[in-house]
């Protein structure tokens, strides 16, 4: 027990990186997601096709493969990133693909009526998207998005492949010293579990606060 406490700082450092990766990945995913969703629904056919293809690719490649492509590929473009950034990029790209799906389905459930109303008062497509459709879509998407949040959190563990010092890597380092894998990995599992629960509760609370009265919705 005492031994465990002495390793806690290392685990917390690991969790700190996990949190950073999660935040970075989600944020990047968000931006990519709303842009792709917009393109896939409201832009003309050729652009739609390209966006849909990008979507498929981002969702069709395993995360680890994406990590390696970015990590080994970027130097050719003259950019060298530390592994953590490559991991965040990979997480963000993958999440972007899935978030675009979430937003796409909520946007479709909102329907075209409001877009037409916006256009009839002179708003351009992108402005209508920004001021009218997106605010609603984001609110309605919160339940599905909360799920994506925990998915990204759990996926950060794969940054292990790039040697990033996130929670799991730190745990493995500790295990290499203490040779007590059961204890450490169960604690790590518990940490992820608690984090997931907190996220779900938090997102639920936010959803209750911001949801539009009368519209239950939910992208599920």
């Amino acid at each position: 027990m005492a031994a465990l406490l002495s390793y806690l700082p290392y685990l917390l450092t690991g969790f700190y990186y996990t949190a950073l990766l999660t935040a970075g990945g989600l944020a990047l995913g968000f931006v990519i997601g709303i842009l792709l969703a917009f393109a896939e629904i409201y832009l003309p056919a050729p652009v739609r096709g390209v966006a849909a293809a990008i979507d498929q690719v981002l969702r069709g490649i395993p995360l680890i493969v994406m990590f390696f492509l970015i990590y080994f590929g970027l130097p050719y473009a003259g950019i060298t990133f530390p592994p953590a950034v490559a991991a965040a990029l990979g997480l963000g790209l993958r999440s972007g693909g899935y978030q675009s799906q979430i937003f796409r389905s909520t946007l479709q459930s909102i329907g075209t009526g409001q877009l037409e109303a916006a256009q009839s008062i002179g708003l351009g497509r992108f402005d209508a998207y920004r001021h009218i459709l997106l605010p609603q879509a984001i609110r309605l998407s919160i339940p599905a998005w909360s799920n994506e949040f925990t998915v990204v959190l759990k996926d950060t563990s794969m940054a292990y492949a790039l040697g990033v010092s996130e929670l799991l890597k730190q745990a493995a380092n500790i295990v290499a010293i203490t040779l007590e894998p059961l204890q450490i990995y169960l604690v790590v599992a518990a940490i992820y579990l608690i984090a997931s629960l907190v996220i779900n509760r938090g997102m639920n609370a936010i959803y209750e606060r911001v949801k539009m009265p009368g519209l239950g919705g939910g992208a599920n």
């Binding site: 493995a172 894998p181 990995y185 169960l186 599992a189 992820y192």
Partner: peptide, 22 residues
């Protein structure tokens, strides 16, 4: 709930690295 709340990699590590301890 336990499985869905934890990363697959952690589950793999437990099965492959931790269970031998038992």
């Amino acid at each position: 709930e336990l499985i869905r709340g934890t990363p697959m990699l952690v589950q793999l590590f437990i099965i492959y690295y931790a269970l031998p301890q038992l």
